[in-house]
């Protein structure tokens, strides 16, 4: 597998797994309007994942389509960050994660608009508008929960503390091959961190919350080393497809 394929897969897996987790909120959101909103976000992320997986399969050239890559890769071959795979906590933690993730994705897709990989650039052009809305949605809720009631403030701060240590992995560029950076295919995520932090901190402070000072979690998603929860996530997602190898759906 080339570094190019691995790069696209890492991007794909972040949004695929994030979408899988968001799907778990449908029919249990705090209000019916929010069920609709979360489903929209989940659908956007799933759409991005499908485009990216299809692209990765085409780049690889071994006949693997989006489903082969989503359903028939083993855990060690998934390259997503830990942030997205952990089971979601309460609504506050979910919105904290959405704020951290979608702000990062917005910076990422903005940078990839000029990728020399035309397909990536095309995906970015569509995705950048989507994640802009997701980041806005997360901001709306972080403000309301942070500056709402005592309970919501406490929960929002706790949610932020829980998610924060996992954000750092998004900006670890060590998995991105230097050649991909030179040719302008990929972006070095560490270059996105400053703008990301500026935006996130602004929301956190406006929401009367405190920016966590916790150390980054020790992770390994980009190398295929995941949390214990990842196994369950994949077991649930993949079991049906794997029970019927070769079947179409």
């Amino acid at each position: 597998m080339t570094e190019h394929v691995r790069y696209v897969l890492a991007l794909a897996d972040d949004v695929l797994v994030a979408s899988q987790r968001l799907g778990g909120w449908i029919a249990r959101a705090p209000e019916l309007e929010e069920d609709v909103a979360l489903a929209n976000i989940g659908l956007d992320l799933l759409g991005q994942a499908r485009s990216l997986l299809t692209h990765a399969g085409a780049l690889e050239g071994e006949g693997r389509d989006e489903d082969a890559l989503a359903y028939f890769r083993d855990e060690r071959d998934f390259l997503n960050v830990h942030l997205v795979e952990r089971s979601h906590g309460d609504f506050a933690a979910t919105m904290a994660r959405l704020l951290l993730l979608s702000t990062y994705l917005h910076e990422l897709w903005t940078a990839l608009l000029t990728s020399t990989d035309d397909t990536l650039a095309a995906v970015a052009a569509k995705a950048v508008k989507e994640v802009d809305y997701h980041a806005d949605h997360a901001r709306m809720w972080v403000l309301r929960l942070g500056d709402g009631t005592e309970e919501s403030h406490r929960r929002m701060q706790a949610g932020l503390e829980a998610e924060w240590p996992y954000a750092e992995e998004l900006f670890d560029g060590s998995y991105v091959d230097a050649a991909l950076l030179e040719t302008g295919v990929a972006v070095d995520p560490s270059t996105l961190r400053e703008r990301w932090a500026g935006r996130v901190v602004a929301v956190v402070e406006e929401a009367t919350l405190t920016v966590p000072t916790s150390r980054p979690a020790v992770t390994g998603g980009r190398r295929g080393i995941h949390t214990e929860e990842m196994g369950y996530l994949l077991a649930e997602m993949q079991h049906l497809a794997r029970s019927h190898p070769g079947a179409s759906w």
Binding site: E33, V36, A37, N40, D136, H137, M140, R144
Partner: peptide, 9 residues
């Protein structure tokens, strides 16, 4: 939020 819910719905 009403505007956003309106958009989604």
């Amino acid at each position: 939020m009403a505007l956003r819910n309106g958009r989604d719905l």
